[in-house]
């Protein structure tokens, strides 16, 4: 008597999108987009090939960093970046408080709410470099323009998160204060601030680290900092100096992130 063949049972994981029509349409859409998008990229393969040939020399220059010959410039760039990061974080932190309060629905009035939201969206939507273009036109080249740029970016970032934190506060505490006849300022100081303060300080420290990172970029449009030194080195084809600057940036960003992580952990 022959043994009955055991039926083979196969299992496959359930698909992400249940409806098969929708699933295939989504896939088709993705493929169509990719075809369209890659079709519009013009690649100059000759240039790429030539670049790859040269890249060996370029990369080897990057990896032989020259810290010495332009050290005074690098040093000045680092100091500018640090000064910009510190001052803009403090200015931004102070300035974001009125905007954050205004943009929190539960402690603000509708008109103020709309105004503050518009300011926040404007400050957040533009990349720092674009804001820097404006400030460079306004106050000239140099770290002051960078400081103003980073301050504005900090206001946008912190005010939004502060407003969210205030909107997420426990309403019963505020209600209890209101019942005792507290005025708006008293509600903010004793009802809201204690609830949002730890998170807010953590965010401000995080922003210090972010501002330092961004200070390395806005130099491209003349707003000072280590980015300005890097741009100069790149446009002089001075790749071993550029390599040294890049390594300095990576190291300092790492240090800043490590420090801000420690501070935030201790604050919690």
């Amino acid at each position: 008597m022959a043994a009955e063949p055991t039926p083979v049972r196969r299992w496959s994981p359930p698909p992400l999108i249940g409806n098969p029509v929708l699933r295939w349409l989504a896939l088709l859409g993705v493929v169509a987009y990719l075809v369209l998008a890659t079709g519009s990229i013009e690649i100059n393969w000759v240039r790429v090939a030539r670049g790859l040939e040269r890249s060996q020399r370029l990369i080897s220059e990057f990896l032989r960093p020259d810290f010495v010959s332009r050290w005074s410039h690098i040093q000045r760039g680092i100091l500018e970046s640090l000064a910009m990061a510190v001052s803009s974080t403090l200015i931004g932190t102070l300035l974001c408080i009125p905007f954050g309060l205004g943009a929190a629905r539960n402690v603000s009035t509708p008109v103020v709410y709309m105004l503050c939201r518009v300011v926040i969206v404007l400050a957040r939507s533009f990349q720092e470099v674009i804001i820097a273009i404006f400030f460079v036109v306004m106050v000239g080249f140099g770290p002051l323009a960078g400081m103003l740029t980073l301050s504005l970016a900090t206001v946008g970032f912190l005010a939004k998160l502060l407003a969210e934190a205030i909107e997420n506060t426990d309403p019963t505490q505020i209600e209890a204060m209101r019942a005792t006849g507290a005025n708006w300022l008293q509600i903010i100081v004793y009802g809201v601030v204690p609830q949002v303060f730890p998170r807010f300080v953590g965010l401000a420290v995080y922003r210090l680290d972010q501002n330092f990172r961004n200070s390395a970029v806005i130099g491209i449009v003349g707003a000072g900092g280590i980015g300005a030194v890097l741009t100069t080195a790149m446009s002089r084809y001075d790749y071993s100096v550029a390599g040294a600057i890049l390594m300095t940036i990576v190291l300092l960003v790492l240090l800043a992130e490590y420090a801000s992580g420690i501070i935030r952990a201790r604050l919690q």
Partner: peptide
């Protein structure tokens, strides 16, 4: 900045 120096300007 680095990639443009390597393979030239463009979307890629």
């Amino acid at each position: 900045l680095i990639i443009v120096a390597l393979i030239g300007p463009g979307v890629l």
